[in-house]
């Protein structure tokens, strides 16, 4: 259901393929331009080699108020390297030119898009090869214009829903959505956690009752057992902070290898070494 054209978009195709394989789709988050301005393409290649189905690319913002310490640090480092919304679109174009065919979803706070020009941003991002957009501080009430612009450019606007979302708010969000629904596992900021919170399961049931769209779960996922627990309950797992942690902890020369290995563990392609 990607916008106004009738051919299914990359996001829809990706979820359909994973469903046909009887497995969870796997979405990885990277802060664009972290740790160095030109580090992203090689990291994306490693993610894909590890089995990632879709990429979420974060546009850094000076005031990441929904993020925990890990993504805050990556954000500040990326900003210091000069990353902007405009450069992030160049990066998307570069990834497409390098043959990256998986869905690319941009995740951002609202102000960098506003400063770029909301309408122009969606047009330019769609032309660069962006498939979907997530606005972290953009609830459905404030996203109506952006949603129309996304529809006009066949871009999926992906809503965030949280355990605190009422059924009424879930309805509001899914009516505006396409692509998939991002279910935030916990009332909290981003960051790797030890266990999946119990309030997640109720949220998934409540969202499922109101939409056929695939449900992706993010915030806190860092272990293979988290991913296994989601099997049958959701359609995709999103991992962010835990990947940034791996990048942060790895020596530069081993960075891509470590990221690939970690993703292989999470996707079940490789057994975890304890």
């Amino acid at each position: 259901m990607s916008g106004s054209d009738t051919s299914p978009g990359r996001i829809e195709q990706t979820f359909a393929r994973a469903r046909d394989d009887g497995r969870l789709a796997f979405i990885a988050y990277l802060t664009a331009g972290y740790p160095e301005p030109d580090a992203t393409p090689a990291l994306v290649e490693a993610l894909i080699a590890g089995g990632v189905d879709a990429l979420e690319l974060g546009i850094p913002f000076s005031d990441p108020l929904a993020d925990g310490p890990t993504i805050q640090r990556s954000t500040f480092q990326a900003l210091q390297g000069g990353m902007t919304a405009a450069r992030c679109l160049e990066l998307v174009r570069e990834l497409r030119n390098k043959g990256v065919v998986i869905p690319i979803i941009l995740m951002t706070y609202y102000n960098p898009i506003l400063a770029y020009g909301q309408d122009r941003f969606i047009q330019d991002a769609a032309a660069a090869g962006m498939d979907g957009l997530i606005g972290i501080d953009l609830p459905p009430e404030e996203a109506e214009e952006l949603a129309a612009q996304c529809r006009a450019n066949s871009v999926d606007l992906i809503p965030l829903l949280a355990p605190t979302s009422t059924d009424e708010r879930i309805g509001l969000a899914v009516r505006q959505a396409s692509g998939f629904v991002y279910c935030v596992s916990v009332a909290g900021v981003t960051g790797a956690r030890k266990a999946l919170p119990s309030e997640l399961w109720g949220l998934l049931q409540r969202v499922r009752r109101q939409t056929e769209l695939p449900l992706a779960v993010g915030f806190g996922i860092s272990r293979r057992e988290h991913v296994e627990a989601l099997q049958g309950q959701a359609d995709a797992a999103i991992v962010g902070s835990a990947i940034i942690d791996v990048i942060e902890e790895s020596p530069r020369a081993e960075r891509e290898a470590k990221v690939k290995e970690y993703v292989e563990v999470l996707t079940g392609r490789r057994k975890a070494r304890n």
Partner: peptide, 21 residues
């Protein structure tokens, strides 16, 4: 009722806070 003074104001926050607001 959307919390706007002309164009200004609104409620640009993560979804988690919307119900509390």
């Amino acid at each position: 009722d959307r919390g706007r003074f002309g164009d200004f104001g609104g409620r640009f926050v993560p979804e988690t806070l919307m119900t509390a607001l």
